[in-house]
């Protein structure tokens, strides 16, 4: 694995953080900014608000235009303004970010979304976008439009019931911050098997562990007592990759139902990284997949790498 070319170029990565409110989105935004800085990725912040019923949509728009005359801005723009200020507070050393000024009048409506034009944003690689509608639909559109590599979604939005849709329909890697506590010390738990997505999840895990200094555990689960060559090989390759990066790894091999074992092992103090399923989409739709079931059942943050 170490001889191969890396699967991604960190400099070219684009991450998207979905924020919902000033009240609940702070941990998500903080983790989103941290992860984006770990990967040196450009960072989009999207607020997906509720869309007014189409019947009264034009009356709501008429009111919003009128509110502009009174300098009362859209509630979603308030959240985006707050997000920008929070990002500045989190990275006081970032001079190009500090120069950016938010102006609610400087917005551009395009492709069914509102993009905030940020003066002096050259080099800061920040994008603020307002969308309205159903969350999964709007995130999917934003990811497809801007080719994001990772979508970061807050646990405050309680998206467990949307686990299936999040994993199956968002065309990027997905990071769901369930019950995420920025003050807590997490261990990074990498789920390793013989699937093709494991290699990329190992590379993601190594970058995060290196930058954040988190302890790393790999877990390989077999349904039977016998671990196949594919599983053992993947676990060895993961270990050697981490060693090459100077990261110590604890390896675990357990037997049982994979999802139950992942969830029980993760408890409440791990940060799970796993590869996306390679199952046929129709089978995933009908029967689910390991990532979908794990996301449904676990209470810890989970990054599913595609």
């Amino acid at each position: 694995m170490t001889k191969k070319k890396p699967l991604f170029d960190p400099k070219a990565l684009k991450f998207l953080t979905a924020v919902s409110s000033i009240e609940y989105s702070k941990p998500t935004l903080k983790m989103g900014a941290l992860i984006a800085s770990v990967f040196d990725a450009s960072h989009g912040i999207v607020y997906v608000g509720e869309k007014a019923s189409e019947f009264h949509g034009s009356s709501v728009n008429l009111t919003r235009h009128n509110l502009d005359n009174w300098n009362i801005i859209h509630p979603g723009l308030e959240v985006l303004e707050w997000a920008l200020e929070e990002l500045k507070k989190m990275s006081p050393e970032n001079q190009s970010l500090a120069k950016i000024r938010f102006n609610p009048d400087h917005v551009h409506e395009e492709d069914g979304r509102v993009r905030v034009i940020l003066p002096n944003s050259n080099g800061s690689r920040i994008e603020l976008v307002l969308r309205e509608g159903e969350l999964i639909d709007q995130l999917r559109r934003e990811i497809q439009l801007e080719h994001y590599d990772l979508a970061i979604i807050g646990g405050s939005q309680n998206k467990r019931h949307l686990a299936h849709s999040i994993i199956q329909y968002l065309p990027s890697s997905v990071f769901v911050l369930q019950k995420f506590n920025p003050r807590k010390h997490y261990k990074l738990l990498l789920l390793v098997d013989d699937s093709s997505a494991t290699r990329k999840s190992v590379e993601y895990g190594a970058l995060i562990a290196k930058k954040l200094g988190w302890p790393v555990r790999t877990l390989t689960v077999s349904k039977t007592k016998r671990f196949g060559e594919g599983y053992l090989g993947a676990a060895d390759l993961a270990k050697s990759y981490f060693h090459k990066q100077g990261i110590e790894v604890e390896q675990f091999f357990l037997t049982g139902d994979p999802v139950t074992t992942f969830v029980n092992f993760a408890g409440d103090n791990h940060f799970i990284i796993m590869g996306a399923s390679t199952l046929n989409p129709v089978k995933q739709f009908l029967f689910g997949s390991k990532p979908i079931k794990t996301l449904e059942q676990t209470d810890v943050p989970i990054l599913i790498v595609r």
Binding site: G49, A52, S53, F55, H56, S59, V60, T63, R64, P75
Partner: peptide
């Protein structure tokens, strides 16, 4: 919030 336009309008304030 969906029945009357006035109700939808105040609901859109988020307040």
């Amino acid at each position: 919030a969906v029945a009357a336009p006035a109700c939808t309008i105040i609901y859109s304030s988020g307040l």
